[in-house]
Every structure is written in structure tokens, then in C-alpha cells.
């Protein structure tokens, strides 16, 4: 698992460099070099915290997924805002168990995070065997439809991106 090399996390390095450039808010050549240096050194020194390397099978699908999620965040916010301003005693909050088809840690945590941001739900708990995710929905009349939506809209793309099927 631990693959000691001079570049243990090929994805983390550019991300850290970009974050550094955003932090100093400049594109001076010196800062670019410093950012790349930090992006190279930090993963080396924190290797123990990151035993697994993230692997993205389909970058284009990831971009499309990010677009879908951003769009859904705006829609979900409008929906939740309307629910809040409406009559709170008419809400139908419900706990739903979503069966998981995902296996990898990264994909599951991304799914949980996405569910917190988008369709009027908050992910509450992962069962110890990682088979189900407990989700609280703010206003749902039909839990089965909610589960179907979650699986189709968010879980399927994540499986395609990180588990290549």
C-alpha cells in the first residue's frame, strides 16, 4: 500500500500548488515555484496520514458530476429556503436508510458530503459494515423515490468515476 517514491500523490501536488497560489493571491514566478515545492514536500512529509492514493478513472465524468452538484446546490437552497419560509408544521421530516453500492472510502465520503449539500437531506450515520447510509430528509412524502433519486443522480456517477464500472 505504502508506495515510497518521490511523488507519492500525483493529484495532491497540483491541488496544493493551486491552493498556495490562491492563498497568496498572486501569479508571480517565484510564488509558482514555491507553490510547486510545497505541493511536492507536504505530501512527502504527511505520507503517513494518506496511505491510499486517490485514483480517478474518468476525469470528464468528474467534471460533469461537479457541474450537476453545483446546479443542484442552488436548486436545493431555493427549495429549503421556501420550506423554511413556509409553514413549519406542515413539513414531513423522515429518516431514510440508503443502501450503498460504493466500496471505497473516498467515494462514500464524497457521497455523504454531496447528500449534505444537495437535495434537502443531511447524511447522519454510516452503519459499521458500510452497507447503509442513514439520511435525514427535511420534507419527503415518498422515501422510496428519494432513495431512487439519490442512487441514480449521485451514487451512479461516483461509482463510474472512482470504481470504474
Amino acid at each position: 500500500m505504502m508506495r515510497p517514491g518521490w511523488l507519492p500523490h500525483p493529484l495532491l501536488t497540483p491541488v496544493l500548488a493551486v491552493v498556495w497560489l490562491l492563498l497568496v493571491n498572486s501569479l508571480a514566478p517565484g510564488q509558482i515555484v514555491l507553490g510547486m515545492l510545497l505541493g511536492w514536500l507536504i505530501p512527502l512529509f504527511t505520507l503517513r496520514f494518506w496511505p491510499e492514493t486517490a485514483r480517478i478513472d474518468k476525469p470528464l465524468a468528474l467534471l460533469r458530476f461537479i457541474g450537476v452538484v453545483l446546479y443542484d446546490i442552488v436548486i436545493a437552497n431555493l427549495v429549503v429556503a421556501r420550506l423554511i419560509m413556509g409553514n413549519p408544521s406542515r413539513l414531513q421530516p423522515v429518516f431514510v436508510r440508503v443502501p450503498l453500492a460504493l466500496k471505497s472510502d473516498l467515494a462514500i465520503s464524497l457521497l455523504a458530503n454531496t447528500l449534505c449539500l444537495t437535495p434537502g437531506t443531511v447524511s447522519s450515520q454510516l452503519t459499521p459494515q458500510r452497507t447503509h447510509l442513514l439520511v435525514h430528509a427535511l420534507d419527503t412524502a415518498d422515501p422510496a423515490a428519494l432513495i431512487a433519486t439519490i442512487k441514480r443522480r449521485y451514487e451512479a456517477p461516483l461509482r463510474e468515476i472512482f470504481e470504474g464500472c
Binding site: N77, P93, G120, S124, L138
Partner: peptide, 9 residues
Amino acid sequence: YSRLHAPTK
């Protein structure tokens, strides 16, 4: 659990 939705989103 309902209140949690408001600030997060």
C-alpha cells in the same frame, strides 16, 4: 434535525 438543514444549506 430539521434545524440542522437551515444553516448547512
